[in-house]
Design a binder for these strands. Structure first.
Length: 155
DNA sequence: GCCAACGTTGGC
DNA sequence: GCCAACGTTGGC
């Protein structure tokens, strides 16, 4: 089992929105970056655990934990001209973009802010802690996962 | 295939 | 709202 960090702007979907969703489950659609797409298509597996990260938020940081309930499959929003994620290059035979499904596991009582992550020993190598890192689907090491879960337990 | 211009992300 | 960093586009 692997660990990930998925970013979302709360205005798009927040962890509270996910908590209020049917079965507390959502598609993770709209990823339109090749590197992130490759993770979704090739690496994110059912059962993997995910930190739900709020970006462009007050504060930005990790809001909780989700579980992947469905591995990568074509993001059909790319085929829908009405969708803001529409991509005219995508087709049924060549979906280009992929999504996964995630289910809320645990919503933390508070956000663990990015500033906290940055000052926590052992997390220096995390992509999200590095300036200018825009990747919205990021792998997290088992060690980093453990450290952050410990932080969450002390909230 | 280079790279300047442009658009987007996202912290602050 | 600013702007740095990054990804993508398109002219050549």
């Amino acid at each position: 089992m692997k660990h990930w960090l998925f970013k979302s702007e709360p205005g798009s979907i927040s962890i509270s929105d996910l908590a209020a969703s049917p079965k507390k489950t959502t598609h993770w659609e709209g990823v339109r970056n090749l590197q992130a797409r490759n993770f979704l298509r090739d690496d994110v597996a059912r059962g993997d655990l995910v930190f739900f990260y709020h970006s462009n938020a007050k504060p930005s940081g990790i809001a909780g934990i989700c579980k992947v309930t469905r591995a990568g499959y074509p993001d059909h929003f790319a085929l829908d001209p009405e969708s803001k994620y529409f991509d005219p290059r995508a087709s049924k035979d060549n979906p280009i973009w992929y999504m996964v499904d995630v289910k809320l596991g645990q919503k933390f009582s508070e956000i663990i802010p990015l500033s906290r992550l940055k000052e926590t020993p052992g997390l220096e190598g995390m992509m999200v802690c590095r300036r200018g890192s825009r990747l919205s689907i990021q792998p997290v090491t088992a060690g980093e996962w453990k450290i952050i879960v410990k932080l969450a337990a002390r909230l």
